[in-house]
Nucleic acid binder design. Structure first.
Lengths: 224, 224
DNA sequence: CAAATATAATAGTATTACTATCACATTGTG
DNA sequence: CACAATGTGATAGTAATACTATTATATTTG
């Protein structure tokens, strides 16, 4: 993908970090390298100590950016959802026809990720894979309610709401617009996970299958 | 729920445990009390040491039943899916009409859990809540593929397949029966999670809403 | 050039997730 | 009854984790 708005920045809730990793070279290395490492070894095995030695820095320096690795995961997933929201708005904003708009929206959020040169320190393709594997761990914790109150999940919620609003625009009488919106986003991640690890539980094996599955699903429901 | 088949036992893959917890009083206390504790404090904070002191036993004794707490979680989720499969087969087996059969199946797997007196040491209601919060942690690990090969997820997969088969029985031309089956199971857990923590992202707030949502979703798709 | 700030190095702590060993109690078998 | 096998409990020990604290050293900025 090409650089359309080179000066854009994804804004993350300030409570998620101690110091904005986007404000320094070290911060960007922390974020950029953590994506590679979490992708390689999984979130559980990833530690700040290992990250420190990988970026020739120190454990204690990383703690000046993120309180703990859970907050770093929240940063990464928030960034991903913010980036996806930007793609979504950019691609659908000019579409007038509600059906075409929703169809495009589903395509954007369910298709596999391509690289985006606009954010050089972040590998969006690997980040997408991290989100598939680790996203639910960001909210399946004892602290969800507190963190939700603090707005840690607001980007994700806004994204679901955008999709739900598009659904309502097509069929205002449909009673489950929010549920359908959340099912598309979460269900899409899940289908990609199944494709890699439980292929017998999904039919989405090819490039555009997940998009086709959800487009068919959503429009069948809204027509009836 | 009443005891229909009092002598039934949910069979769990033997590789998941070191010693069958169903074979002794201590084993049953380990399983029964772990459900209460994981529900209370979440899987991350739960440790074998804490469990030991809660059941007036010893950490090392628990290790004689389960290699680690991840295996214990696999045991609990497998048990839950096995139990749910039993409910499903029991409730749908005698239904001839494919539409009625699938409708009933969706009801069984998406409705909230009631207590089952047949398994006295297991609190199915709390176990269902654990599954909502912790199930994905049982497979979102680096070891999934090895554990899958060893059959750790076979009950869950069989359950998805049962639903997929019912879908195919109604509409053999539908291309996404497996995906739809997995979406129902996983999506249902997710809607229950949203209900408790992100209510704005779901419409399933009442007792039967999740069932109604998925029944409407599935039959809309299969009709079209 | 001095002061402020950022980073690195080191050390230390409580907890976790185990492993190993030994003692004791119970149970089953010959 | 004796003795062996098994199950359980108690204790100790280890490596790794997830931090915190302190101090030293760079680097930037005013």
């Amino acid at each position: 993908m090409d650089r359309l708005l080179p000066s854009i920045k994804i804004i993350i809730n300030e409570k998620i970090y101690v110091k904005d990793p986007d404000s320094s070279d070290l911060g960007k290395r922390i974020v950029g390298e953590s994506i590679l490492m979490i992708h390689e070894m999984g979130f559980e095995s990833f530690t700040f100590k290992k990250l420190g030695s990988r970026i020739s820095s120190n454990e204690s320096s990383i703690y000046r950016y993120f309180e703990n690795k859970h907050k770093l995961l929240l940063y990464l997933t928030s960034w991903y959802w913010g980036w996806l929201e930007y793609q979504l708005v950019f691609a659908t904003n000019s579409i007038e026809n509600p059906n075409e708009k929703l169809k495009k929206a589903i395509e954007i959020v369910t298709k596999g990720t391509e690289e985006d040169s606009a954010f050089s320190h972040i590998n969006e393709v690997l980040l997408n894979k991290i989100v598939i594997n680790e996203n639910s761990k960001s909210y399946l914790t004892q602290k969800v309610d507190v963190e939700n109150k603090d707005g840690y999940f607001s980007i994700y919620k806004r994204l679901v709401n955008r999709i739900s609003d598009m659904i309502k625009a097509i069929n205002p009488d449909y009673s489950y617009a929010a549920s359908l919106g959340s099912t598309i986003l979460e269900g899409s991640l899940h289908q990609y996970f199944l494709k890699d690890h439980f292929p017998s539980l999904t039919d989405c094996h090819g490039t555009n299958d997940t998009t086709a599955y959800f487009q068919h699903l959503v429009f069948s429901i809204l027509k009836s």
